[in-house]
């Protein structure tokens, strides 16, 4: 019968050995290791995209139809019936709301997918080793295809209304990246929490629904009174993303101050999410 020895009481391993042992507290992010698994990230993203379009009869058409129909309903209900107007008389409400819907739909789709992604891939987690971050990241990346498709429709819509894009358009990738990071930041929290608490998957649709109403998708940010209420709205990172996206596409007023608030919130959420995820990562395979 051997006697239990305290952990860490071993001689150092020889050169070239990788050591697995229990880690306590906060783990290092180890982004280099994530990079080593980039091909797996590529294949999992590719799988998500492939499967989504294969299962649906209309396939790719959904990516275009969904934001378009939402825009039509928004225009009829909020613009025609309730009188919410585009802040710029040169931009019709249809184009205004559609431009907001693009980053919003991307964000909500990414959240719904990535938030449950760890539980959905439980069989992978328990059978193969890879950095678990690959899973929520691939969920967030897969949504970019939908975004690109609906972006083409936006260009068509702008052409139909005779709105010329401005030079600001070169910043579109920046705001897409910001939308991606925002979606990732929130997804990391949701995905990790959902492994531990299955309630999260029921909360996500509800969260997404409420979140849309506090984001300037239907209405412009200028509709919110200046002062503390406006600042509170700016704490929602999607306010900055949508404002920035509209600025880049339609040449509306630059979001300015609240943009920086949104950026700071994203940074805090993302860094916190990464560390929380890494910390919880080691129990995923045991709990999921």
């Amino acid at each position: 019968m051997s006697i239990a020895r305290p952990a860490g009481d071993w001689p150092a391993p020889a050169e070239g050995f990788v050591v697995y042992q229990r880690k306590r507290g906060w783990a290092a992010l180890d982004l280099r290791q994530l990079w080593a698994y980039r091909e797996l990230l590529y294949f999992l993203t590719w799988r998500d995209i492939l499967v989504r379009y294969k299962q649906a009869v209309l396939g790719v058409t959904w990516a275009v139809l969904q934001p378009f129909l939402t825009m039509v309903v928004f225009t009829v209900v909020f613009n025609k019936a309730l009188g919410i107007k585009s802040p710029d008389s040169a931009i019709p409400y249809a184009v205004f709301s559609y431009t907001g819907l693009l980053p919003w739909n991307y964000f909500s789709g990414a959240l719904s997918r990535s938030g449950v992604s760890l539980v959905g891939n439980a069989n992978l987690l328990t059978k193969v080793y890879f950095p678990r971050l690959v899973i929520p990241i691939s969920g967030v990346l897969a949504g970019l295809v939908d975004l690109a498709l609906s972006f083409v429709v936006l260009l068509g819509l702008m052409a139909a209304y005779g709105i010329a894009p401005t030079w600001h358009m070169v910043f579109v990738p920046v705001f897409v990246l910001l939308a991606l990071l925002t979606a990732l930041a929130v997804s990391l929290w949701l995905a990790a929490l959902n492994v531990l608490y299955r309630d999260v998957q029921y909360i996500i649709p509800f969260l997404v629904q409420l979140w849309m109403f506090v984001s300037p998708v239907i209405y412009p940010i200028s509709a919110i009174p200046e002062g503390s209420l406006r600042v509170a709205f700016a704490l929602n990172p999607m306010t900055g993303v949508i404002g920035g996206f509209r600025w880049a596409m339609l040449g509306q007023e630059f979001p300015g101050g609240y943009m920086w608030v949104s950026l700071a919130v994203v940074a805090v959420l993302l860094v916190g999410g990464l560390f929380y995820f890494k910390r919880m990562e080691r129990v995923f395979a045991d709990v999921v």
């Binding site: 239990a4 952990a7 071993w10 697995y20 042992q21």
Partner: peptide
């Protein structure tokens, strides 16, 4: 895949 509780690999 899973972390040891004690000892090491």
């Amino acid at each position: 895949i899973t972390e040891p509780t004690e000892g090491r690999v």
